[in-house]
Write a protein that binds this DNA or RNA. Structure first.
Length: 666
DNA sequence: CTTAGGG
DNA sequence: CCCTAAG
């Protein structure tokens, strides 16, 4: 719907002219977008259960799965959902407290009763400590041997998922759909694809005459893309295959049944299953914004840092979520990891036994070594829940609990990320792994991962693998940036966020995917990152449990860190070219929305910059070009589009039109 | 927030 | 990519 509206607005703006693309979208049009966004917000029936989630997580970690399983079993049925209720954060907090009391038996959480994340952290810390302890012992023999810490807490995600019986669907409790929804791949995929598709199929596009230079392309464009899109859309079914991924974020945002789309007639065909959108409970785990370090510090995650595209239509929810998360983050963020390296020679861990005294954080000190790690907390992904007004508080609690279980209930593993890559070899020493002073500060990260495989030693199942791969290839998220701030003892606070974000990886990947999907599937595909291929294929379970450190942050409050470099893939370039051909060179925001709406890491400024470089690249000899070669065909289009739009721009500026100039001269 | 450019 | 000046 949004798209349609937008189209119309554009048309309005373009009103007088026959030209399909207006040089500029009138302010009015933008205003509309904003309004739309607001509407979407009000419509959304989501409950942010971040806090709850965290709380539960803590519990889970402490107690293991058992309790979880029980809880889900006893979940009360939810009444049919006619209307959704949106719970405000404040309310959530209250719930959390109560919930906590109920669920938590231990006083262990007392201090942190109100702060879920704390509990989580503690749990993690404990696990960690043990490992570390063991490690330190082992180290006596093998100095500097650091193996990955693993926190094995219990059941794996898939197991939990299985527990959600079909009946629950009926009851309104957890549904298979809900589970499916949680799948990053699915969710991401949908999000990405749909929009693009719409764009491509946008009525306007159809009506509009393609710009002169592109006309030929445009002609074949639709069918072609459609094809591509289709392909990308077909995700593997969920493990159960029952419901499939019927619901996507769009649905949520649209609020109305997602299936109903404006220009649906045409577009619809491309939409994946729209069937389950009515599932009563939808949960979406979102990736938590990447890291930041200190409270008060602004995170530098992509999303955060970038100019926000608040006008996003369909995906608006996601963004909103993230944003809202930020605030919370301040409160909860303790995901900071402090690392100090004094000496690179030796690396040994010393478990901090006095941890108890410090509920919130544990620090591992390396004796000789000089490496101090302090993980203050792991971030829990934001959880969105849609629940009928008629649902009982108890059911809400259960729902949240289940969701949390899905994420944390499974056995967890701790992954170590270095330079954005997973360090899998547990036997490696830090040194061997290249984790040294400086490195550590800059590129060390930890992640909580679902332990899908019963055998820790074994390479994870595909799901897990996918997950890993995604992280490696796709996400800088995994990276942890060191904080500038140095703590008291010269420790460096590498504040980082460890986020439990099932969706993080997926999103990233999907984001890319989405971007590519329109065009990406074509030959240039190979060029694209592996992530792309992976994403669509991700099994639901894998994602559901996946936890990724979302941080890329490393910035000290004072100086932000440079975002990681992400070369544009050919597919992205193609998408960009396509969009620019249609929209012109002065509407980067629109280009962003049109072709990169899902690629959170690409800002309109990035696109503009990329275009700039593309134009440059196109003008130099192939020998001088570097990086992934861009097909000459695309470069040609770049030049053509650049020329065309430059001309258009010139025309629009009546200031010194040729004629006028001539007159003046004469 | 967006654009447009320089760095 | 970043940063900034300008709307």
């Amino acid at each position: 719907m949004v798209f349609q509206k937008r189209s119309s607005s554009e048309m309005e703006s373009g009103g007088g002219s026959q030209v399909a693309e207006m040089p500029r979208v009138p302010k009015s049009a933008r205003g509309k977008r904003s309004v739309r966004k607001k509407e979407a917000q009000s419509q959304g029936q989501m409950l942010c259960a971040f806090d709850l989630l965290a709380t539960v997580a803590g519990k889970l970690l402490d107690e293991g799965e058992g309790s979880l399983g029980n809880m889900s079993a006893g979940a009360p049925a939810l009444p049919a959902c006619s209307k959704g209720v949106r719970v405000k954060q404040e309310q959530c907090d209250e719930e959390v407290k109560h919930f906590k009391n109920e669920v938590t038996d231990q006083d262990s959480c007392n201090e942190s009763a109100i702060l879920p994340h704390i509990a989580v952290q503690r749990s993690v810390s404990h696990a960690r400590n043990e490992d570390l302890k063991a490690k330190s012992e082992a180290q006596d023999k093998e100095s500097s041997m650091i193996s990955c810490t693993k926190a094995e807490l219990g059941c794996n995600f898939s197991a939990i998922a299985d527990r959600w019986s079909p009946e629950s669907v009926e009851s309104g409790a957890f549904t298979g759909d809900a589970v499916a929804n949680m799948m990053p791949a699915a969710a991401a995929g949908f999000q990405k694809i749909t929009p693009d598709m719409y764009n491509l199929l946008d009525p306007m596009d159809v009506d509009m005459k393609p710009p002169p230079l592109v006309s030929s392309d445009s002609t074949g464009e639709m069918p072609l893309h459609g094809d591509k899109v289709r392909r990308s859309i077909s995700f593997p079914r969920g493990p159960k295959g029952a419901t499939g991924y019927a619901v996507d974020r769009d649905d949520d945002d649209d609020k109305s049944s997602g299936c109903t789309h404006p220009s649906t007639t045409t577009n619809r065909a491309f939409r994946p299953n729209c069937t389950a959108e009515h599932s009563r409970v939808k949960k979406l785990l979102r990736k938590v914004a990447p890291a930041r370090m200190h409270r008060g510090d602004h995170s530098y995650s992509d999303v955060e840092r970038k100019p926000s595209f608040r006008n996003k239509k369909m995906y608006y929810t996601r963004q909103r979520t993230q944003r809202s998360t930020f605030k919370r983050r301040k409160m909860f963020d303790r995901h900071s990891v402090t690392a100090a390296a004094r000496d690179s020679h030796a690396a040994s861990f010393e478990a901090n036994k006095g941890t108890n005294s410090m509920p919130f954080e544990k620090s591992c000190e390396l004796k000789d070594c000089h490496v101090k790690l302090k993980i203050k907390s792991f971030k829990v992904p934001e959880l969105l829940i849609e629940i009928p007004e008629t649902a009982t508080v108890g059911s809400l609690k259960k729902t949240v609990l289940e969701a949390v279980n899905a994420i944390l209930g499974g056995s967890l593993r701790v992954g170590v990320l270095h330079n954005g890559k997973k360090v899998r070899d547990d036997s490696k020493t830090l040194m061997q792994a290249g984790i040294g002073h400086d490195d550590m500060l800059d590129n060390l990260g930890f992640s909580l991962e679902p332990n899908c495989t019963q055998n820790p030693s074994q390479v994870p199942a595909h799901e897990d693998t996918s997950f890993l791969e995604i992280i490696d290839t796709t996400e800088p998220l995994a990276r942890i940036a060191p904080t500038d701030s140095f703590s008291k003892h010269g420790e460096i606070d590498v504040s980082q966020e460890l986020a439990l974000t099932p969706f993080t990886a997926a999103y990233q990947g999907s984001d890319r995917d989405s971007v590519h999907s329109p065009v990406g599937t074509s030959s240039p595909d190979k060029a694209s990152t592996s992530s792309r291929a992976i994403v669509p294929v991700l099994p639901a379970d894998s994602n559901a449990g996946a936890i990724v450190p979302a941080n890329k942050s490393k910035r000290s409050p004072e100086q932000g860190q440079r975002r990681i470099r992400r070369p544009f893939s050919v597919a992205e370039v193609e998408a960009l070219v396509l969009a620019v051909e249609k929209l012109g060179t002065g509407r980067w925001r629109d280009v962003k929305l049109r072709a990169f709406d899902n690629a959170k890491h690409r800002t309109y400024v990035d696109l503009k910059d990329k275009w700039k470089t593309l134009v440059h690249t196109a003008s130099i000899s192939p020998q001088q070009r570097r990086g992934e070669p861009v097909p000459q065909e695309l470069l040609d289009r770049v030049l053509a589009a650049q020329a065309y739009w430059s001309q258009q721009q010139a025309k629009l500026q009546p200031k010194t039109p040729p004629l006028a100039e001539a007159r003046l001269l004469t």
